[in-house]
Design a protein around this nucleic acid. Sequence first.
DNA 1: AATGAATGAGTCTTCATTCAT
DNA 2: AATGAATGAAGACTCATTCAT
Lengths: 202, 202, 202, 202
Amino acid sequence: MPKVGMKDTRKQQLIDATMESIAELGMQNTTIVSISKRAGMSSGIISHYFGGKQGLIEAALRYLLEQLGKELRERMAKTDGSPEQRLDCIVEANFSEFQRSALAAKTWLSFWSRSMHEPGLKRLQQINNARLYSNLRYSFAQVLPAGQATEAARQTAAMIDGFWLRSALSLDPMESFEAGERLTKQFIHDTLAKAGATNSAN
Amino acid sequence: MPKVGMKDTRKQQLIDATMESIAELGMQNTTIVSISKRAGMSSGIISHYFGGKQGLIEAALRYLLEQLGKELRERMAKTDGSPEQRLDCIVEANFSEFQRSALAAKTWLSFWSRSMHEPGLKRLQQINNARLYSNLRYSFAQVLPAGQATEAARQTAAMIDGFWLRSALSLDPMESFEAGERLTKQFIHDTLAKAGATNSAN
Amino acid sequence: MPKVGMKDTRKQQLIDATMESIAELGMQNTTIVSISKRAGMSSGIISHYFGGKQGLIEAALRYLLEQLGKELRERMAKTDGSPEQRLDCIVEANFSEFQRSALAAKTWLSFWSRSMHEPGLKRLQQINNARLYSNLRYSFAQVLPAGQATEAARQTAAMIDGFWLRSALSLDPMESFEAGERLTKQFIHDTLAKAGATNSAN
Amino acid sequence: MPKVGMKDTRKQQLIDATMESIAELGMQNTTIVSISKRAGMSSGIISHYFGGKQGLIEAALRYLLEQLGKELRERMAKTDGSPEQRLDCIVEANFSEFQRSALAAKTWLSFWSRSMHEPGLKRLQQINNARLYSNLRYSFAQVLPAGQATEAARQTAAMIDGFWLRSALSLDPMESFEAGERLTKQFIHDTLAKAGATNSAN
DNA sequence: AATGAATGAGTCTTCATTCAT
DNA sequence: AATGAATGAAGACTCATTCAT
């Protein structure tokens, strides 16, 4: 237990250092040395714990995905479960404080790019993309007809990712993230309201 | 003139080869050799024409941006200039055949990621982001009040980039691009329609 | 005594594991981990018992040499001591079951190569080479004149090592070892017979 | 022609430097840097010409084998082709000046050891071993009955390799090589003489 | 103008050794 | 006594750049 805990602590420190390095230097300029130096450890430790640089990179992406899932579950547990609140939760999870950090944001973007040509990363990304879409669609479907729910889910997913992407590249990321969260929620509410109006008109 | 033409031809061939290599191998695995081999030229020519690998990368991004601007201008010239048609043009330009090609899509994504840490690329990206937003805002502002126009423009820009990003990573990029174009236009029309309803109600 | 015995047992297990690793992976790919894993011990134990990898390697060679000496002494004790029988004993010891094992054979060859550039190993090898030659020469000298005995001893030593070398590299080591033993003995007998004929003719 | 010549020159210089390094430092301590420094070139050139260190190592072994074959063919061309002279040629080729050089001798021994665990090298070694045996057997068979020819060929091959091996490890390699050549030839002559005596007795 | 051979700094990885427990 | 986590030096390999032709 103490040793395992120690081991996990060091692994987490390396994952943190990896995200820091990617955020600061870019994935291109992130090396085993830039990571291990940030973690205050030797370079050999990376191969020791993760089998190599690639293993650490994948572990870092997996960590980001886990954090995202965790944020969502935590928020979901606190809502009354109405579709609108659930949709808001999804948006909030994707724009949470952690996800907004330059650290996470820049790391995500690096992973997106790299995952196009690395099967291991690509699979992780696609699972995450599918999860976001499927969560959105499920909640929309409780209010909208199937076809409209599908379309609204796709639009919302795109808007989340799009705001997120533009924020990461923005000159004022904080303002951009805040606006992104607000405008995405607004889009969702408008979409639900429009449906409500249509339904009540019928 | 003939020499300059020859020179420009060769430069363009190198830019094409760069995008091909990035699309196929990823930016990570794209080397001076992988590019020059694709172009059927020597590796030294890249330094000769572009001052180095970095110069060629930037030239390739500049080319993508020019293509996007060109698509937009060509489409704009054919419309009657109504706000709705102008907005559709913007969407269409961003989802044009060229932009949809795996070649362009993967290259864009690589540039996005890399531009976070390279000032030269970052500046080009931000100019483009600002241009898209400003074009959208201008047209929305002809129909909507300033505040709403700003919001609609931000939402639309995010949706375009978001669909575009998800398409590039999608298992079925073609379907994803088509749906993206259709759903973005639909969002614009709904937004304009809602405003029209509100206005006419006044 | 019990503790020393325990210690010696562990040291021998490490020597065995060293030969196994060299036989299986080659000296090139034999590491402290590949050895200690085979012995079911920790990697640190090697430095603890042998002062380092090099110490273990030398201990393993010393063990092989001891085995060879032991085989010879055991066989010598059972003969009536005639020159021909003594010579046969020497050959038999060099082609004994243990020496034939792929384990010993491959390890020997690795040591030969390495001993060229490591004084510690080289000294051990030269002692062994000298011992073989001197044993052969002693027995030949009881039958042949000094000059002929010297030549016969050198030829026999070369033939033993040569057969041994070719067997270790052969596609069918077992057949090769058997033939080597038989043909070396035959050479010895022919050499002695020729001398006898010459002598009796005089 | 000039470029190819230049290329071949550089490749040969690298092969020479490889043998020098192996002879001086051992294969264990021979690195890309120890080779390229000796050749007066950069370390990158090795990958450029041979695809990597392993490719250069194999090229060096191939070169040694070619030299051996060449020595044999040159000597064969000058004999009247009698079995005895042919056998002497084979011995002489295996103990030629080049083969005697500490450079070649130590390199051979390193290859022998290493070829046990590297298929590429092993194949080359076995071809050479088979060639030596087959050449010897052919010439013996012109004088001796098949069975005796086979045995004599095996004995001679072993003696050549054995003398060669002991010379490489000897304190006085030159004397050892000379004695090896002389005593191997003597063995051959004795073997042929014995057969002649037997035949003429019939 | 164009080539591509050559360079060598930079990267990841391996592994013998050390040392706190 | 024994472990194995951690280190960091040394290795092979990659690749953008240079430059003689």
